[in-house]
Amino acid sequence: MHSSLFIKYGGFTSIHALIENFYDKLVDSAIVGPHFENTNIETLIEHQTSFISSLLGGPTSFSDQHLASVHSNLAIKEQEWCEVITLLELSLVEFGMEQADADVIINKLVAKKGIFL
C-alpha cells in the first residue's frame, strides 16, 4: 500500500523520465508542436515534472492562479487541449501506470481545464 501515487511511481526521478517522453510527443505533434518552437523545453519539463508530481499526491507545486496566468497568453484551442490530454495519457500508459491511476491524473487535469483554456 503506497501513501500516494507519487511514491508508488518512484518520485521525481521516474516522473521526470515520464515527462521527458511526454514532451518528445508534444514537440513531434503537428497540432501542438508549433507551440514549443523557441521555448526552453528543459525548463518546461522541470515545471511539468513538479506539476504532475503534485497531481500524483506529491508536494504542491503551482497554484491554480499561477497556472492560469502563465497560460493566459497562449490562446490554447479545444483541439490542442484534447491533443495534450491524449498524448499525456499515452505517456502515462507507456510509463507503465495502471489505467485506474492514469484515469485519476487525467480526471484531475480535466477538472482544471478552465485554468488552461
Binding site: F12, T13, E42, T49
Partner: peptide, 21 residues
C-alpha cells in the same frame, strides 16, 4: 552537463520536498 543539470533539479526537488515534510 545536461544530465548534471537534470540531476541537480531532481536533487533540489527532493530536498525541497523533504524539508517541507
Amino acid at each position: 552537463v545536461t544530465k548534471l543539470k537534470k540531476s541537480q533539479f531532481l536533487l533540489n526537488s527532493s530536498n525541497a520536498m523533504l524539508e517541507k515534510y
